[in-house]
Simulated scan of single mutants.
Amino acid sequence: MDKKNVDDYLQEGMYGTRLPKDSERKMYLGALRERVAFALTVGEVMADKGIDELERQLKQHKKAKLLLNGNVSHRFFKEEKALADRFSIPHTTVSNQENDTEIGLVLAYSYAVDIEHIYLDDIDQPTKQQEEEETNPEDDSKGLVAKLKNLFQ
């Protein structure tokens, strides 16, 4: 382990101890990326785009906590707070004037959950692809010759 020198002690005294993955904490309103179950951008919060998906996520993640960006006006969070109250999920407004982030809302755990798709666009995209596959399934009645033709085209 590295020994601390005088500069390290001075930095720690002036700015506090360094937290691991500090940039992630700034981006996700104090949470680490591995703990985030769902996130909405400021624009999505202001446009009320992800309300239905947020409701689904709140139903699914009952032990999570809702973190709201304090730099966004409280009037944009009325529906989100009402949903959190309905599902008995605690919510906190995180105000940090020094950090500017595009994230408006985060549903996070106090432990790592490692969910791959946390953004609204990432979640909507797979469901749209599934809907297209369901509406346009490949016709199984095609013969072997037709399938071979498609293979070589």
Rank of each mutant, 00 (worst) to 15 (best):
G143C: 09
N96V: 05
L144Q: 11
K78A: 10
E34K: 09
E102H: 08
P137T: 01
H61E: 14
P137E: 02
T101A: 06
D52V: 08
L83G: 03
Y28G: 00
T93I: 12
A82E: 15
P20C: 01
H74E: 14
T93W: 00
I103E: 02
E102F: 06
L40E: 09
L66Y: 03
D52R: 13
S23A: 12
N136Q: 12
A84S: 11
D114V: 00
A31T: 00
Y111N: 06
E98Y: 10
E24H: 06
E132M: 15
E34H: 02
V94S: 01
Q57M: 15
Y111I: 04
I51G: 02
H117V: 01
K26A: 13
N136D: 10
E53P: 03
E138H: 09
E98P: 00
S73D: 15
V45W: 05
A37N: 06
L40F: 07
M46P: 00
L66M: 15
E132T: 00
E44W: 02
V72W: 06
K142R: 12
G143H: 02
E44P: 02
D114R: 06
K63C: 05
K78M: 07
D140Y: 08
N71I: 02
E24A: 09
K21E: 11
V42F: 06
E134A: 14
H117I: 06
E131W: 01
P137I: 02
L67Q: 05
S95P: 04
L83W: 03
E134W: 10
E98Q: 10
K65M: 10
K78L: 14
E134F: 14
P90F: 04
E55G: 13
L58Y: 05
E138V: 15
K21R: 13
I123T: 04
T135A: 15
E98S: 11
R75A: 09
K65G: 01
I118T: 15
L144V: 12
P90R: 11
L32P: 03
I123S: 02
K59I: 07
K142G: 00
E44M: 02
A47C: 06
K81P: 04
L83R: 01
L68W: 04
A37V: 00
P126N: 04
P137C: 01
N96E: 14
T127G: 02
L29P: 11
E138D: 08
R35K: 14
H61S: 06
L19I: 08
I123P: 02
Q125N: 10
Y119S: 13
P20N: 12
A64N: 07
E24Y: 07
N136E: 11
K78P: 01
K21P: 01
G30I: 04
